[in-house]
Amino acid sequence: MKGQLGFLVDIDKCIGCHSCEMACKNQNQLDPEIRWRIVYPMKGNSSVPTERCFLSLACNHCEKPECMRVCPVRAYTKLENGIVFHDKNRCIGCRMCIMACPYQVPQFNSNTKKVEKCNLCAERIEQGLNPFCVDGCITDAITLINFNEFNEIKAEREIEGFPNPNITNPSVRFIPYKPGVQIRRDV
């Protein structure tokens, strides 16, 4: 597959259940401290209390990945399907990418003394399968998209809580939360 793969995250559908994160962890057999995908709870506002709205993020497989630019050992490569692939064999654990990633995606594994991150289940993609998080999302809030064909008009590139996308042009789009009518007693 060619193009630029990425995620469409429907925040309106996301219920913050952490199943995507846990499916990733379970199927990719990650160490407990490592979270390739993280469901971030958001601070509340007038329409939604704190920890009732979430941002589920994995690696954003950026068009201009900072991790790849700064890595001194070329552990990162951009595959022709757009996946920013991290090769653990090359990594020497210098943590430069951790400093440079605007999204705090690469994580240092204190066991292997190397960095690791989401590779968008590259092997599964080759077999025509979805990443584990997409298949593990209970409410279908995460979709794998190819930016070459993607034209969902409701999708946003920038959203509150997501760091400035102009640095790296991340391959992720969001459908924002649409609050309903609320009759609340003590607001």
């Binding site: 259940c17 846990m22 499916a23 962890k25 379970n26 199927q27 298949d135 593990g136 999302c137 209970i138």
Partner: peptide, 22 residues
């Protein structure tokens, strides 16, 4: 090695919750 939902059950739809995955 791993657990996942059984897609033949159309209620579970091949997906497990955060607890089941652990």
């Amino acid at each position: 090695k791993s657990v996942t939902g059984n897609p033949k059950n159309t209620y579970t739809r091949g997906r497990l919750c955060v607890k089941g995955n652990s």
